[in-house]
Amino acid sequence: MPEFLQWSFMQNAFLTGTIIATVAACVGYFVVLRHVAFAGHALSHIGFSGAAGAVLIGIDPLWGLLAFTLSAALAMGLLGDRLEGRDVAIGIVLAFALGLGILFLQLYTAYASEAFSILFGTIMGISRAEVVTSLIIGIAVLLGLGVIFRPLLYMSVNPIAAEAGGVPLRLLSALFLLLVALAVSEAVLVVGVLLIFALLIAPPATAMYLTPRIYPALGIAVVLGVLETWFGLIMAYYTGYSASFFIATAAVAAYLLVRLLVWRGVIGIRSTRLTAQPATADAA
């Protein structure tokens, strides 16, 4: 066993990090596919206020996170599946929630470090009980995603045909946002509110540059997210700097590297038919 895994705090960090990176990558695949990155971003920041409120009344920040993100997801889901005007509505809710968060922190001045850990994550300070909690939430999210997977995919690529085929767009959209809220609440434990995109968006976005196939893209996203998380933890252990920093750096580096290689034509999706159809003589 490597030296860093002999410590129980590192074991907990690896277990939680692996669970959360997996869940975030799977949910993130649909966040990217459905273009709801801003909603995911907003949920994490709204979660910050929830966590700050929980600290204020003396309960586990995770419960505050869950309470705020789930209610915000429900509200966003009720706004419907239409994109017009939704970003504005989300932005307004976000501004109000962040304002509340700042108030909560001011009211509870004793623990500035709590705010820091909510914003940037506390992966090295996870207890065994928290590992179990994140495992339970993670399994619940993956099961939920598995149940709505096919209609969610259908309405993500072809919403009008899906609606005509009997897919309840509004209900599924709201259910999906609830899953995003759960995944985001979990991921905040690892990377904090500010770096949520490192696990939620970057790995699936990177994977989608590599393959147009559904399950391979999901698989690559999970592997990338998990490897980036492990890398961050190991680097944090040996350097003493924040794991969140290394995870975010690895995620961005992988994304940029893949984009560079795809752009240079070294790797990536190839069209089966590279040339245009031959022009026929009867151009008229």
Partner: peptide
């Protein structure tokens, strides 16, 4: 956010049904 044409076509069979494709 790429998806193969083939996968989109397959959604026409049972895209409205719950579960994994």
């Amino acid at each position: 956010s790429p998806l193969r044409g083939r996968d989109m076509v397959a959604l026409g069979i049972d895209g409205f049904r719950l579960g994994l494709p």
